[in-house]
Structure formats: C-alpha cells, structure tokens
C-alpha cells in the first residue's frame, strides 16, 4: 500500500478536539492521582486540617499493621475465589451455549442479563434470600444439608456469601466474552477432534482452553479488578466488613480509614498500594496478550 498522509493537519484543531477529554483526564484523574502519592507521605492531624510530612511512615505503618495484612490477604483470597467461581460457572454455561444447536441467541440474552445487575441490587437481594433466619434459600439449604448457615456470625461463611454475590453479578460479562472466544475457534479443529472420538471434557481441556487462553487472561484481570474495587457495595450492604474482619476488603478498609477515621495519609498510602495492584494486573494482561499476538501472527 502507498503511504498516505492524514487528511487534516491543523494542530490547533486537533488540540481543540482533544481538549475536553484531556482536561477531564488531567483534572479528575492525573492530578488527584498525583496528589494521592503526595498525600501518602503526610500525616493528617486534627481531622485533616493540618499536615505533617512523614516520609514513608504511612507505608511502614501499613507494613506493620496486622489489620492491614489481614485485609490484604482477605482481598487476595476474595479475588481468587471470585475469579475461580466466575470462570468455572461461566465456562460451563458458555460451553453449553457453544454446543447448543438451536436457540443460541435466545439463551444468550437470557444468560447475560446479570451484566445489567447493579452490585448494590445483587447484594441487597442475596442479603435477604440468604438471611440466616429469614432467607428462603438458607432455609431450604439448611433443611437439605442439616448445616446451620449463620453467616452473620461465621467469618468464612460471610466471605463465601459475599463472594457468591460477586460471582452472580460477574456471570453475564464473562459469558459474553467466553461464548465469543469459543465461537472464534476454527470449526475444523473441533471436527477433526470429534472424528478422533475425543470426549467433551478432554476437548474442552486440550483444545478449547488453550485456544481461548488470551480471553481467559483478560477475564482473570477484569474479575480481579472487580473483586478488588467493584465489590465495595456488597461489603457495605451485607457485612460491613465483619464478622470480625472476615470480609474487610482493602477497598472497604480504605473507605473507612479515609471517611470514618479521617486518617487521610494512611488512606492515600492504601490507594497507592491499590494502584500497584492495578498496574501489575494490566502489565500481566499486556504481556500475555502481546505474546499471543506474536503466537498468532
């Protein structure tokens, strides 16, 4: 192909078109983010009216804080549970959608609706339906298993209930992407495997999963970010971080430290830690998708 020049060359015009976006990004994203880094080096006194430079003391404080360690571990475990739960269930549904010969698009719309489910709504509905004494689902599960599901007092159970709510909300998004990825697998591969008499589970494990792994990595990243940041309403509405800190995710701790206890410097340091988490996840995704792009080319 011949090289071509872009049609419009007014630098001023381009600047004017980009200006609104750049102003918003600078004022509301970059500038506050930079202030966060700065604030993390200060200690706030008297409800934030005075500040003192403390260097890395806020970070040292986090390193030495048992509560923060606990919150960090819980967040990581929570992310792992949500990622695993979401991917297993969505993969199951997506594989069925991929296999079904009649009515795929109808099933698809019926299966992706949780994409529209607000997290606060998911938390509220499950808070009631899984309520230890009033929840109808709890009632029947207890009747069937004989186990008492009092997650208002049991930490691990509360953790699972919050994770379940997060998985429910994330299903729609994951199913959309997995069905798309499965449909992109060349049919010739499936056909040749079927001719060889390969069973469904082996087909999924040996043929599909490797081929859709870029999408899987993408979804791992998306679900992890959701578990770290998006699950806030669940904790706020369902457990308030309890019982005894079992659901005290980093984001919830950050919120309380900043807006209930007004320790802004420490909260800012926690924000910086979260930034590192996002940056790592994005880096992983870029690296992996890059590798697969080369692989494919």
């Amino acid at each position: 192909m011949t090289e071509t020049t872009k049609p419009y060359d007014s630098t001023l015009g381009a600047a004017l078109l980009l200006l609104p976006t750049l102003v918003v990004l600078v004022v509301f994203l970059y500038y506050p983010a930079l202030l966060t880094f700065r604030l993390s080096l200060f200690q706030t006194l008297l409800l934030g009216t005075e500040r003192a430079f403390v260097g890395l003391e806020n970070y040292v404080g986090l390193l030495g804080s048992g509560a923060y360690h606990g919150s960090f571990l819980i967040s990581v475990a929570f992310a792992a549970t949500v990622v695993l739960g979401t991917l297993v269930v969505s993969l199951f549904v997506a594989y069925l959608l991929f296999q079904v010969e009649v009515g795929e698009s109808t099933y698809l719309v019926a299966a992706i609706w949780p994409y529209a489910l607000p997290t606060a709504v998911a938390g509220t509905v499950l808070l009631f339906l899984l309520h230890p004494t009033l929840g109808i689902i709890t009632h029947y599960v207890e009747a069937l298993t004989g186990v008492e599901l009092d997650w208002f007092t049991s930490g691990p159970l509360a953790f699972l209930v919050v994770a379940l709510s997060a998985v429910w909300k994330q299903l729609g998004y994951n199913i959309v992407f997995l069905v798309a990825a499965l449909n992109n697998v060349p049919t010739t591969l499936t056909e040749s495997a079927k001719l060889d008499g390969v069973g469904h589970l082996r087909l999924l494990r040996r043929v599909y999963l490797p081929l859709i792994s870029p999408t899987l990595v993408f979804l791992v990243v998306v679900n992890t970010i959701y578990a770290f940041f998006g699950a806030f309403p669940l904790v706020d509405l369902m457990t308030s971080g309890g019982p005894s800190g079992a659901t005290n995710l980093l984001i919830f701790k950050l919120y309380r430290d900043a807006f209930e206890f007004s320790s802004l410097g420490s909260a800012a340091a926690q924000s910086v830690v979260l930034f590192v988490v996002v940056a790592l996840l994005m880096w992983v995704q870029l690296r992996v998708s890059d590798r697969y792009m080369h692989y494919g080319a």
Binding site: T21, T36, F229, L264, A267, S271
Partner: peptide
C-alpha cells in the same frame, strides 16, 4: 497523547479517592 489517554485505565476512583473528594 493516545498513550496518555490509555494510561488512565490505571487510575480507577479508589486510587485517587481522597484528593478527588477534597477537589
């Protein structure tokens, strides 16, 4: 400029929440 726009993916609200509130 494009990279500058894309990099904001690294800055969800919780990363800048306290200064943003003060702003």
């Amino acid at each position: 400029v494009f990279v500058f726009v894309l990099l904001t993916l690294l800055l969800p609200v919780p990363v800048r929440i306290v200064p943003l509130f003060q702003l």
